[in-house]
């Protein structure tokens, strides 16, 4: 009883005194509030701006490039998720099997996630090269195509190609996280189901799927949150081109806020994604809470 009471009376102060706690919060939150303030002004880099209310946000509503950016971001961050989840699930199921060299294999498949995006994107940049792409070369030599594939120059191919690279980078995270989920399924459950005469598909459907649902959800939400704010990959591959067909919030913010130095407008662009992200983040936290 006494111990229990002490557990309850324990407070954060035992670890951080209140001021330091406040300091940390300020250090972390300061940029955020500054971002909100900037979005309500016509500030430029090195020039304090005037308060202009919601004008930046209203302006963006009629900006066709912004519309395209929003659409692209939606495709880039959301439409890729099912692909990542499916491929990740497949990968996890394979890795969960008993095999030799399982550690090196697992480390190898993690590589797309480990390697700095700034560098791996350069690799993709070469692979998607309009003239020297090894993929074009292969297909051309097999006689399947007569012209090089315009990976990053055709409207539909361009967004597909950046999504492809994005999926490639995301699959290992899904794979390893789902693998963790699979390993938490007690073996007895499978055995019991097998004894009951359930088919492989049945066991997969009724034992495996329910037990990894949570992991897939968490991985999906994290992946959405991370790729929504992505920048590096697209910046190296296309910088949003051609004709803005691959622009996403991150690259458009950069273009307006840093290159054209309209930091107020840039802040507004990135804050437009905030409510959407916040919804996903809150969903994630609610889910976690429910699980407790």
């Amino acid at each position: 009883m006494a111990a229990n009471a002490r557990l309850k009376s324990f407070s954060m102060r035992d670890f951080f005194d209140r001021e330091r706690n406040l300091g940390i919060m300020l250090f972390m939150a300061y940029p955020f509030f500054l971002g909100i303030w900037l979005s309500l002004t016509d500030s430029m880099i090195g020039r304090a701006g005037q308060f202009i209310g919601l004008r930046n946000f209203v302006d963006l509503l009629t900006d066709t490039i912004f519309h395209q950016t929003a659409k692209n971001t939606f495709i880039y961050a959301l439409v890729t998720v099912p692909f990542k989840a499916m491929l990740g699930l497949g990968l996890a199921l394979i890795l969960n099997r008993h095999m030799r060299f399982s550690s090196p294999v697992r480390a190898a498949v993690m590589m797309p996630w480990i390697v700095p995006t700034a560098l791996s994107s350069l690799g993709w940049f070469m692979i998607f090269d309009p003239v020297f792409s090894p993929i074009s070369w292969l297909f051309r030599n097999m006689g399947l195509i007569s012209k090089n594939i315009n990976f990053l120059g055709d409207p539909i191919l361009a967004i597909s190609s950046v999504c492809w690279a994005n999926i490639w980078r995301g699959v290992p995270f899904f794979g390893i996280t789902i693998l963790a989920g699979l390993q938490s399924v007690p073996q007895e459950l499978h055995e019991a189901a097998a004894i009951d005469g359930a088919s492989v598909w049945h066991r997969f459907r009724h034992v495996t799927i329910p037990s990894i649902k949570g992991v897939v959800l968490i991985a999906s939400l994290l992946s959405i949150i991370w790729t929504f704010a992505d920048f590096q990959l697209i910046y190296i591959l296309t910088k949003g081109g051609p004709a803005n067909e691959t622009h996403i919030f991150g690259t458009y913010t950069y273009q307006i806020g840093l290159q054209a130095t309209e930091i107020g407008m840039g802040a507004a662009i990135s804050l437009y994604m905030f409510p959407i992200l916040a919804v996903f983040a809150i969903l994630l936290l609610i889910y976690l809470r429910k699980e407790q």
Partner: peptide
Amino acid sequence: RLRFPGSNFLGLGIFLAYLVPPTLL
């Protein structure tokens, strides 16, 4: 382990603040 007033909001707040992309931060 611990419950203290605002513990939920603290976590949520930190998490949300860092949804703003580094390009701006």
